[in-house]
Design a protein around this nucleic acid. Structure first.
Lengths: 188, 188
DNA sequence: GTTATCCCTCCAATATAATGGATTTTTATG
DNA sequence: CATAAAAATCCATTATATTGGAGGGATAAC
């Protein structure tokens, strides 16, 4: 049922590599993770496709995240993409004085989105709630901003960073002068 | 064998959310992913811990990566953290004329790290290979930079963005004038 | 060569993930 | 309220993940 270069095989290689790199034996790792030696052996030989529960145990024991064990790394090439300034997707104004440049690649939309936003003096950007669990990280590059998330708000000066929930209505406002900020949206 | 708020439960919630957000029924998703309705139902109810093989099918069908389905995002409050400019962790110079401000929260280290880097004229930042599968997104905020990853290199002007592998030796250099850049490191 | 230790693989037994079809629950329509 | 359609869950069967212990090299000490 599985194809040529299955996820199981990838995981097998990855796991073995990671374990070896930490100088662990199967037995040592078994104790550490609570997964039996036999199972570990099978997984490393590509003969078993572990459940998320056991996979979770492994990531905990090895101190890596899922991506580290599972994600595709076939892009072994080095430079992957260059996006020139004049080609960078731009949203020019959501009503008022905001210019938003989208720095993250389209393929990542929904996971992680990165924006470079410029506000004219007094401009504001109001957003509807995004998906449940979504949050944003905002860093002020120039000027000063006021951020409101739900019923809380905060004043930010140049260089400040704020993390806040974005699964509720939220707004960003340039208080007095023009401003520029870096916005990172997780799980939108 | 699993604790109260297990990975299985997290996945259950995540999966259901994601599926609903795409307006798919269990049947529709079953066809799309090749996983049976029954199984999907069990997973969404937290009664089953899917194997990586089936999990892989799900991520393919839903167009998300593993982190999207599995990683922890708990925390429902609104404003979570404010990091003032003068409190922002800073690495002052890795030998030569680089000032690095760490914008991402420590809890995310390894997953996603965000840096604001300032280079004096001619300065450079050379990095050893990070973890397998690691890559970086670099956006030039001011000035111009030259990036080398493995045996390739690229010239970047203000506003340009570059994505490149960071699981090999890589370097960033300010060519003529002082420069400033935003660096996002995935899976370091 | 023998003994001992460590590390991994093989094997039989058990637990559980995965499936297809039947059943119930929900949603929509008259 | 009655009915139909769709969607989600339950159930029995099959496939497979997981385990503990037995077996088979390696390597080192004597």
């Amino acid at each position: 049922m599985e194809a040529d270069y299955s996820i199981t095989d990838r995981l097998a290689t990855r796991l073995k590599e990671t374990r070896k790199s930490k100088g662990l034996s199967l037995e040592a790792m078994a104790k550490l993770s609570g997964v039996s030696r036999s199972m570990l052996s099978q997984i490393e030989r590509g003969q078993s496709s572990p459940t998320v529960a056991t996979l979770w145990s492994l990531t905990q024991a090895l101190q890596v995240d899922f991506a580290g064990l599972l994600d595709d790394d076939s892009g072994a090439g080095t430079i992957r993409e260059i996006m020139r300034a004049n080609r960078t997707p731009t949203i020019d104004s959501q009503g008022e004085g905001c210019r938003i440049r989208i720095l993250s690649p389209p393929g990542q939309a929904g996971q992680l989105e990165v924006y470079d936003i410029r506000f004219t003096s007094g401009a504001s950007l109001i957003s509807e709630p995004h998906r449940q669990g979504c949050h944003e990280d905002l860093t002020v590059l120039e000027g000063a901003l006021e951020v409101t998330s739900g019923d809380e708000s905060a004043q930010l000066a140049e260089g400040d960073t704020l993390r806040y929930a974005a699964d509720c209505t939220h707004a960003i406002r340039a208080v007095g002068a023009p401003a520029r900020a870096l916005l990172i949206v997780h799980n939108s």
